[in-house]
């Protein structure tokens, strides 16, 4: 092997190694993170939430400053969408591991007539003991749901379920500083939720 050939082969090997390092380790640092939902860039804090929580407590969004809050609007008689979403969120917490300690999942009931704080406590514990459910009078729930872009209305159900409640099924993420940052669609997976939550937990 001639000296020139050795130099050329060495240079090629160097280019391949440098290229691989740049592609796999350096380039990803400069590519902006792509969320799995719609980001919001409001300079105003997330609309306030003050509703009845477990054990007679009052739950306020501001109680969770320093934590990432996942807000979801659902109800305990919900036959499909709510259990699926809460199960995905529970799976997302598993994926996050210890980091999940800095995440608080809150479900606001859009069925305040049937969902008392006690009913919500039992229901949420079924998915994850750290999840909490909140409710309040119809006016308070309507105000909060409305400003979070959530529509809901009672609809005909079956004898077993009683009336149903049609509602917006998006999941909202409020960052550690209390700003509403992300709206995730119902179709999102647990892995995608965990990835997005992980970004806000950095």
């Amino acid at each position: 092997m001639t000296r020139t050939l050795k130099i050329v082969l060495g240079a090629l090997a160097g280019v391949v190694v440098i290229g691989a390092v740049a592609y796999f380790f350096v380039l990803p640092q400069f590519v902006p993170y792509v969320f799995h939902g719609q980001t919001i860039q409001s300079n105003q804090a997330a609309p306030s939430v003050e509703l009845d929580g477990p054990n007679g407590s009052t739950v306020r969004l501001t109680d969770y400053e320093g934590q990432v809050v996942v807000l979801y609007f659902g109800y305990t008689f919900c036959p499909d969408v709510c259990p699926i979403t809460l199960s995905k969120l529970d799976r997302a917490m598993d994926i996050l591991g210890d980091k999940a300690e800095d995440v608080q999942v809150i479900m606001v009931s859009v069925d305040p007539l049937r969902d008392t704080p006690e009913v919500l406590e039992q229901y949420m514990a079924h998915f994850n003991p750290d999840f909490i459910g909140v409710t309040g009078d119809a006016d308070a729930v309507d105000r909060i749901a409305t400003v979070y872009g959530v529509y809901y209305e009672a609809a005909e159900g079956s004898e077993a379920t009683g009336y149903l409640v049609n509602h917006t099924a998006t999941v909202m993420i409020v960052d550690k500083d209390g700003y509403l940052k992300l709206v995730l669609p119902f179709e999102g997976t647990a892995e995608e939720m965990a990835a997005d939550l992980g970004y806000f937990l950095r």
Binding site: I40, A145, T146, Y148, G149, Y152
Partner: peptide, 11 residues
């Protein structure tokens, strides 16, 4: 265009 804030849900 800026993503200003969520528009409200309504019925």
């Amino acid at each position: 265009l800026p993503r200003i804030r969520l528009s409200p849900g309504y019925l």
